[in-house]
Design a protein around this nucleic acid. Structure first.
Length: 416
RNA sequence: CGGGGCGUGGCUCAGUUUGGCUAGAGCGCUUGAAUGGGGUUCAAGAGGUCGACAGUUCAAGUCUGUCCGCCCCGACCA
């Protein structure tokens, strides 16, 4: 990809609309733009990162034996009346009436829709266990949208649902999801905490939250320095460990995942039953598993940046590498840069080629801001000695070698 | 919704306190020239309903009222 043909509007200064670091960097690096409060456009680079996250999630979900589907965002309000959750959701649900006077809402989540589907199409224990998931846009009229993509009114969620005939089956699926979540967040380059959580309006009993410690986090995790118990804060008081009565530590975090054992809450309300091996009718046992896909972007940035910009973890970097010919008016520099570009493409390595007629300083600053994990720098100085440079964005390490040596190094770093 | 802040070219902001001629700066953008390893320099340009509406006044970016939008703190959540 050539920079000049793309759409990468970087900003030198921090827009007034952004307060949190991750939000500032997302705007400055040209990942997103706001349309209105809590509603954002993903620009090409932001979409690339989003796609990379989704790729990881799909791979890990598929590895659990989950099947991907896509449920509608438009839903009949009636379904929510049946489950009784229309009241719980309240103003958060975006509702309207269409021309046929049908009462419609934009899905804030999908337990109702998926349970309705299960009710109609699961009738035998032979169809269980089953895990379904989707990656889809949710709509919530938040009381207060905040921090860019961290709390948005339109956001992308991965939601998975498990269906089992008994608690034992649910335990197994829950554990599989729990493990998958650990792998997903690790691959996203995150340090995170797992807490015992309050199921809230989702219902059910067992529930865990995946929390990313970050300055601009809006959730507080209470951590016990003694017995390592971690839980999400529920009230202002009560800050002593319930297990060992030690004073708890407060950690600011961003919630990126939440898994719940729903049990029969939805299946009983919406009548999702199956016949067991004895021919007896029973309610399907459910679990649900959410990841804030779009929210992961700011969470990752919150933990992966320095004073120059973003430092993407390898798997999320919008491009694997950025090629920086420092002076595009110089024929030799241009040629070497093009050769490298070609060679990388032939090896299936997606590169961003900064072909702009800009000074070296501008290119360096922009490259550091974007945070693409590798930078190949082709300039007159090192070219004199027949060398080119490879900079690793994360630790600013520089490797200086011949073209062939650098290409080998790049392949090693990307594939190895 | 309660509390606080803000709204002036694409971005950052000055000017509003104390009303006064054709509304400014830096960055970005266009054109030309120089430069070419950390946001370089010079010159010439383009770009504005000063958030909106109503009012006060000879005169409103500036004063008054209403509304709208955005941000931050609180209740809610992936």
């Amino acid at each position: 990809m050539f920079w000049s043909k793309g759409f990468i509007p970087t900003l030198k200064e921090t827009p007034q609309e952004a307060e949190s670091i991750s939000h500032q960097l997302m705007l400055r690096a040209g990942l997103i733009r706001m349309l209105m409060a809590g509603v954002y456009s993903y620009l090409p680079l932001g979409l690339k990162v989003l796609n990379n996250i989704q790729k990881i999630i799909r791979a890990e979900m598929d590895a659990c034996g989950a099947s991907e589907l896509l449920l509608p965002a438009l839903q009949p309000q009636e379904l929510w009346t049946k489950s009784g959750r229309d009241k719980d959701m309240g103003e958060v649900m975006i509702k309207f009436t269409d021309r046929r006077q049908r009462k419609i809402c934009l899905g804030p989540t999908h337990e109702e829709v998926i349970t309705d589907l299960a009710k109609n199409h699961i009738s035998s224990y032979k169809q269980l266990p089953l895990i379904l998931y989707q990656i889809q846009t949710k709509f919530r009229d938040e009381l207060r949208p905040r921090f860019g993509l961290i709390r948005a009114c339109e956001f992308i969620m991965k939601d998975a649902y498990s269906f089992d005939q008994d608690q034992n089956g649910l335990d197994k699926n829950y554990q599989a999801m729990y493990n998958a979540y650990n792998r997903i967040f690790k691959r996203c380059g995150l340090k995170f905490l797992v807490t015992q959580a309050d199921p809230g309006v989702m219902g059910g009993t067992v529930s865990h939250e995946f929390m990313v410690p970050a300055e601009d986090g809006e959730d507080i995790v209470l951590s016990c320095p003694e017995c390592k118990l971690q839980q999400t804060q529920k009230t202002e008081n009560d800050e002593f460990c319930p297990k060992c009565n030690t004073k708890l530590e407060k950690i600011n975090t961003i919630e990126v995942g939440h898994i719940f054992q729903l049990g029969t809450k939805y299946s009983s309300m919406l009548g999702a039953n199956f016949l067991d091996a004895q021919g007896k009718q029973r309610e399907i046992i459910m679990g649900c598993y959410g990841i804030g896909v779009s929210r992961l972007i700011p969470a990752v940035i919150a933990q992966n940046h320095d004073n120059q910009g973003i430092t993407w973890p390898k798997e999320l970097s919008p491009y694997k590498i950025i090629i920086l010919p420092l002076d595009v008016t110089d024929k030799k520099i241009r040629k070497v840069a093009k050769d490298i570009h070609k060679e990388l493409e032939e090896n299936g390595i997606e590169a961003l080629f900064d072909d702009r007629d800009e000074r070296a300083g501008v290119k360096f600053k922009d490259a550091d801001l974007l945070g693409i994990s590798l930078q190949v720098i082709i300039g007159k100085e090192s070219l004199k000695k027949n060398k080119i440079e490879l900079k690793i964005r994360k630790d600013n390490r520089k490797i200086i070698k011949s073209k062939e040596g650098i290409l080998k190094e790049i392949k090693r770093l990307i594939h190895g």
